[in-house]
Protein backbone atom coordinates (compact mmCIF):
# COMPACT_ATOMS: atom_id res chain seq x y z
CA UNK A 1 0.00 0.00 0.00
CA UNK A 2 1.87 2.97 -1.26
CA UNK A 3 0.28 6.31 -0.91
CA UNK A 4 1.80 9.05 -2.96
CA UNK A 5 2.12 12.12 -0.88
CA UNK A 6 1.97 15.18 -3.02
CA UNK A 7 4.94 17.44 -2.46
CA UNK A 8 4.03 20.70 -0.84
CA UNK A 9 3.48 23.71 -3.08
CA UNK A 10 2.67 21.64 -6.15
CA UNK A 11 1.99 24.79 -8.07
CA UNK A 12 1.69 22.98 -11.38
CA UNK A 13 -0.16 19.69 -10.84
CA UNK A 14 0.21 18.61 -14.48
CA UNK A 15 3.99 18.55 -14.28
CA UNK A 16 3.93 16.86 -10.90
CA UNK A 17 7.00 18.80 -9.90
CA UNK A 18 7.18 20.66 -6.66
CA UNK A 19 7.43 24.35 -7.17
CA UNK A 20 10.07 24.80 -4.49
CA UNK A 21 13.43 25.08 -6.15
CA UNK A 22 11.90 26.44 -9.31
CA UNK A 23 10.82 29.95 -9.97
CA UNK A 24 7.96 31.11 -12.12
CA UNK A 25 9.45 32.42 -15.39
CA UNK A 26 8.14 35.89 -14.60
CA UNK A 27 10.57 36.19 -11.71
CA UNK A 28 13.63 34.77 -13.43
CA UNK A 29 16.19 37.47 -14.02
CA UNK A 30 17.66 37.47 -17.50
CA UNK A 31 21.31 37.22 -16.65
CA UNK A 32 23.49 39.85 -15.06
CA UNK A 33 23.69 43.18 -16.84
CA UNK A 34 27.27 44.25 -17.08
CA UNK A 35 28.22 47.88 -16.97
CA UNK A 36 27.17 50.79 -14.89
CA UNK A 37 24.46 52.30 -17.07
CA UNK A 38 21.78 52.30 -14.39
CA UNK A 39 24.17 53.75 -11.86
CA UNK A 40 25.24 56.51 -14.22
CA UNK A 41 21.61 57.23 -15.13
CA UNK A 42 20.78 57.51 -11.43
CA UNK A 43 23.74 59.80 -10.82
CA UNK A 44 22.89 61.90 -13.88
CA UNK A 45 19.36 62.44 -12.59
CA UNK A 46 20.66 63.85 -9.30
CA UNK A 47 23.37 66.05 -10.80
CA UNK A 48 21.30 67.35 -13.71
CA UNK A 49 18.46 68.04 -11.31
CA UNK A 50 20.63 70.30 -9.17
CA UNK A 51 22.09 72.11 -12.21
CA UNK A 52 18.62 72.50 -13.75
CA UNK A 53 17.31 74.22 -10.64
CA UNK A 54 20.00 76.88 -11.07
CA UNK A 55 19.57 77.14 -14.84
CA UNK A 56 15.78 77.32 -14.82
CA UNK A 57 15.46 79.79 -11.96
CA UNK A 58 18.23 81.92 -13.55
CA UNK A 59 16.33 81.78 -16.83
CA UNK A 60 13.03 82.73 -15.20
CA UNK A 61 14.60 85.57 -13.21
CA UNK A 62 16.37 87.12 -16.18
CA UNK A 63 13.37 86.76 -18.49
CA UNK A 64 10.50 87.61 -16.19
CA UNK A 65 11.74 89.66 -13.26
CA UNK A 66 14.79 91.74 -14.20
CA UNK A 67 14.25 95.13 -15.81
CA UNK A 68 10.85 95.52 -17.44
CA UNK A 69 10.20 91.87 -16.73
CA UNK A 70 7.73 89.96 -18.84
CA UNK A 71 6.79 93.06 -20.88
CA UNK A 72 10.25 93.20 -22.37
CA UNK A 73 10.00 89.80 -24.00
CA UNK A 74 9.71 89.94 -27.76
CA UNK A 75 11.64 88.79 -30.82
CA UNK A 76 14.29 91.40 -30.16
CA UNK A 77 14.77 90.29 -26.56
CA UNK A 78 15.44 86.72 -27.64
CA UNK A 79 17.66 87.86 -30.50
CA UNK A 80 19.62 90.00 -28.08
CA UNK A 81 20.15 87.14 -25.68
CA UNK A 82 21.30 84.73 -28.38
CA UNK A 83 23.79 87.24 -29.68
CA UNK A 84 25.67 86.60 -26.45
CA UNK A 85 27.65 83.30 -26.26
CA UNK A 86 26.95 83.20 -22.51
CA UNK A 87 23.19 82.89 -23.04
CA UNK A 88 23.71 80.57 -25.99
CA UNK A 89 25.59 78.24 -23.69
CA UNK A 90 23.05 78.72 -20.88
CA UNK A 91 20.11 77.83 -23.11
CA UNK A 92 21.97 74.97 -24.73
CA UNK A 93 22.80 73.46 -21.32
CA UNK A 94 19.19 73.92 -20.24
CA UNK A 95 17.89 72.26 -23.40
CA UNK A 96 20.19 69.23 -23.21
CA UNK A 97 19.93 68.68 -19.48
CA UNK A 98 16.16 69.14 -19.35
CA UNK A 99 15.61 66.85 -22.33
CA UNK A 100 17.92 64.11 -21.07
CA UNK A 101 16.62 64.43 -17.51
CA UNK A 102 13.03 64.19 -18.69
CA UNK A 103 13.75 61.38 -21.14
CA UNK A 104 15.48 59.33 -18.48
CA UNK A 105 12.57 59.91 -16.13
CA UNK A 106 10.06 58.74 -18.73
CA UNK A 107 12.35 55.79 -19.53
CA UNK A 108 12.19 54.59 -15.93
CA UNK A 109 8.42 55.10 -15.90
CA UNK A 110 8.13 52.97 -19.06
CA UNK A 111 10.35 50.32 -17.47
CA UNK A 112 8.19 50.32 -14.35
CA UNK A 113 4.77 50.36 -15.95
CA UNK A 114 4.95 48.70 -19.38
CA UNK A 115 3.87 45.11 -18.94
CA UNK A 116 4.72 43.62 -22.31
CA UNK A 117 8.17 43.68 -23.83
CA UNK A 118 6.78 44.82 -27.19
CA UNK A 119 4.94 47.75 -25.56
CA UNK A 120 8.09 48.68 -23.71
CA UNK A 121 10.16 48.60 -26.90
CA UNK A 122 7.75 50.74 -28.92
CA UNK A 123 7.21 53.31 -26.20
CA UNK A 124 10.96 53.68 -25.90
CA UNK A 125 11.44 54.00 -29.66
CA UNK A 126 8.85 56.83 -29.71
CA UNK A 127 10.47 58.44 -26.66
CA UNK A 128 14.01 58.36 -28.04
CA UNK A 129 12.88 59.57 -31.48
CA UNK A 130 11.03 62.53 -29.96
CA UNK A 131 14.02 63.35 -27.76
CA UNK A 132 16.45 63.23 -30.66
CA UNK A 133 14.29 65.47 -32.85
CA UNK A 134 13.84 68.09 -30.14
CA UNK A 135 17.48 68.14 -29.06
CA UNK A 136 18.79 68.37 -32.64
CA UNK A 137 16.23 70.98 -33.64
CA UNK A 138 16.78 73.05 -30.49
CA UNK A 139 20.54 72.96 -30.84
CA UNK A 140 20.30 74.01 -34.47
CA UNK A 141 18.07 76.95 -33.57
CA UNK A 142 20.39 78.17 -30.84
CA UNK A 143 23.46 78.11 -33.09
CA UNK A 144 22.00 79.09 -36.44
CA UNK A 145 19.57 81.71 -35.17
CA UNK A 146 19.44 84.64 -37.56
CA UNK A 147 18.01 87.85 -36.13
CA UNK A 148 17.61 89.29 -39.61
CA UNK A 149 15.69 86.67 -41.58
CA UNK A 150 15.76 87.39 -45.31
CA UNK A 151 13.70 85.52 -47.86
CA UNK A 152 14.04 86.16 -51.60
CA UNK A 153 16.04 89.26 -50.88
CA UNK A 154 13.24 90.76 -48.79
CA UNK A 155 13.53 91.45 -45.11
CA UNK A 156 10.89 89.37 -43.28
CA UNK A 157 8.59 91.16 -40.86
CA UNK A 158 9.44 90.74 -37.25
CA UNK A 159 13.12 91.05 -38.00
CA UNK A 160 15.15 93.03 -35.56
CA UNK A 161 17.83 94.66 -37.61
CA UNK A 162 18.81 98.11 -38.69
CA UNK A 163 17.70 98.75 -42.25
CA UNK A 164 20.47 97.89 -44.70
Amino acid sequence: MTATIQPPRSGNPSSGKPSSGRIAPKYRRSGGSKGNFEMLAWLFMRLSGVVLVVLIFGHLTVNLLVGEGIHAIDFGFVAGKWADPFWQFWDLAMLWLAMLHGTNGVRTIINDYAEKDATRLWLKIVLYAATTVIIVLGTLVIFTFNPCPVANGVQLPGGFCPAP
Binding site: R29, G32, S33, F37, E38, M39, A41, W42
Partner: peptide, 9 residues
Protein backbone atom coordinates in the same frame (compact mmCIF):
# COMPACT_ATOMS: atom_id res chain seq x y z
CA UNK B 1 25.47 42.04 -7.69
CA UNK B 2 23.27 44.91 -6.56
CA UNK B 3 24.67 47.21 -9.28
CA UNK B 4 22.54 45.12 -11.64
CA UNK B 5 19.82 46.85 -13.63
CA UNK B 6 17.34 45.13 -11.31
CA UNK B 7 19.37 46.07 -8.26
CA UNK B 8 19.38 49.12 -6.01
CA UNK B 9 18.90 51.58 -8.88
Amino acid sequence: ILNDKEGVW
